[in-house]
Design a protein around this nucleic acid. Structure first.
Length: 478
DNA sequence: ATGTCC
């Protein structure tokens, strides 16, 4: 065993041995550099991983992605699998407050020059079309009856209402809806919050960006995905389940904290998958996840409407390349030591990266693997990546989810207040629109890790490799 | 992340 219960496995891989913290039932593996390991120790995320490894019913190792940092109970960038039955557990903290926070990318037929020529007009139109900011509401609230359909059908609900194409659904992880939804497990309060927020962006690191293909790093895969032409314009949408998902998480943290079925210690609460409380949480989580998929689909329809108005019919039909969920728990089959098992895989601030040949992928992605979307911070870059062949064995087919914070919001505001962030971004050729008074400080690139570093470690660790680098032309923030 | 404290 290494010093202090930590063994080095490689340049980008460390193992927390069971001696790292009393009570660990399994080891944890951390895909970081030495510097990243020290940061994870300092912010408490190693201890959170070790506590996760103490939960019952775990399968394989607990994992931390290169962008790991401290979260509520369970680190952001954490991945943990549990048996789908028997003593396996589910943990709301292992999914996070923003259930099915995720990212999608629309690929337009437009080139950089024609879009730059009208970028201010486009940014204004997108900002006007998509409500954003804390508490932002939709123009029209759904009835309780209609909301229920959204919770059951996810992105399909929007497509059935003319807000998208059938092809959009197969470009979503899980087809844009989880099955085994239990709308009755979603509280009245959560549903009330959800009725008026469908099609809204929210705040924080959520964004809507007009981007250009800046660099093609894997010609073959980029070709298959239609993003192999430098200067091609794409639109990235990063948001989640708004107040509804937040309320679901809050409701079940409280319920499980007080439940006899729950194995809770401090922030990390959980319940057996097969218990009443565990099943109820999973049914409510699925409903919130479906709300998030519908939310991204409704925003997509608004984006296409704006593109059609400014650039014509073809731009308005821009296809969806893919939609990933980076805060979710899913039932998946994985092969361990020659045996295929059904597991509940929690990914919190981690992206599924199913590689070439995975049976769950739509045929279009079967040959090369699914697109993995890593959103960057405002004004820098984002990446498309693809899972490496060994990623299923290394991390249950998971990789990082973006550039994690290095400054808290409060610290960012304190350090950056007084700077003309709009002008700084304009100098880099990025036009920005925002709602909140502190947003440009809280979301400043200096408040985030370097996305290139996260991408390099994902690659170095053998999880995923970069396919395309995207850079922003315009950013819409809450 | 979040009607950033019902």
């Amino acid at each position: 065993m290494g010093v202090g219960g930590i063994s080095r496995l490689g340049d980008y891989s460390f193992r927390l041995e069971r001696g790292f913290l009393p009570g660990m039932r399994r080891t944890a593996r951390v895909f970081v550099t030495e510097v990243g390991l020290e940061a994870a120790r300092a912010d408490g995320s190693l201890e959170q991983l070790a506590r996760t490894a103490a939960l019952p019913g775990g399968v394989g190792e607990v994992l931390a992605m290169p962008d790991v940092h401290r979260g509520y109970g369970f680190p952001i960038g954490g991945v943990a699998a549990f048996a789908a039955d028997g003593d396996g557990v589910v943990s709301p903290g292992g999914v996070g407050y923003d259930i099915n926070c995720g990212v999608r990318l629309l690929v337009t037929p437009l080139g950089e020059d024609e879009v730059r020529a009208r970028i201010e007009e486009l940014a204004d139109a997108l900002f006007a079309a998509v409500p954003c900011g804390v508490g932002a509401g939709a123009r029209r609230a759904l009835s309780g009856r209609e909301l229920r359909k959204v919770l059951i059908r996810g992105a399909r609900w929007a497509v059935e209402h003319g807000l998208g194409f059938a092809g959009d659904l197969e470009a979503c992880e899980s087809g844009g809806a989880l099955e085994e939804v239990d709308p009755e497990a979603v509280s009245d309060r959560a549903r009330e919050r959800g009725r008026g927020q469908l099609g809204t962006l929210g705040s924080g690191n959520h964004f809507l960006e007009v981007q250009r293909v800046a660099e093609v790093l894997d010609e073959e895969v980029a070709g298959v995905w239609g993003v192999d032409e430098p200067g091609r314009v794409a639109v990235m949408i990063h948001c989640g389940s708004r107040g509804l998902g937040h309320q679901v998480c809050d409701d079940y943290l409280k319920r499980l904290r007080g439940s006899a079925e729950s194995a809770s210690s401090g922030e990390l609460v959980s319940a057996p998958v097969e218990s009443g409380a565990g099943r109820a949480y999973l049914g409510a989580m699925a409903a919130a996840a479906n709300y998030a998929w519908a939310n991204r689909q409704v925003i997509t329809a608004e984006v296409r409407r704006v593109l059609a108005e400014l650039f014509g019919r073809a731009a308005g039909a821009s296809p969806l390349l893919y939609d990933v969920a980076h805060n979710i728990a899913k039932f998946e089959e994985h092969r361990l030591e020659g045996v295929t098992r059904r597991l509940l895989v929690h990914r919190k601030g981690a992206t599924r990266a199913f590689p070439a040949g995975h049976p769950e992928l739509a045929s279009r992605f079967r040959e090369h693997g699914q697109p993995v979307i890593l959103p960057g911070d405002m004004g820098t870059a984002s990446y498309l990546m693809v899972g490496e062949p060994g990623v299923l064995e290394l991390s249950f087919g998971s990789t990082g989810h973006g550039a994690g914070r290095v400054l808290s919001r409060r610290a960012a505001v304190k350090r950056l207040r007084g700077r003309d962030v709009r002008a700084e971004l304009a100098e880099r050729g990025v036009s920005v629109r925002w709602e909140g008074r502190r947003t440009l400080y809280e979301e400043h690139p200096e408040a985030y890790k370097d996305i290139d570093e996260v991408v390099a470690v994902c690659r170095g660790a053998g999880l995923a490799r970069p396919v395309v680098r995207l850079e922003p032309l315009a950013v819409i923030k809450g």
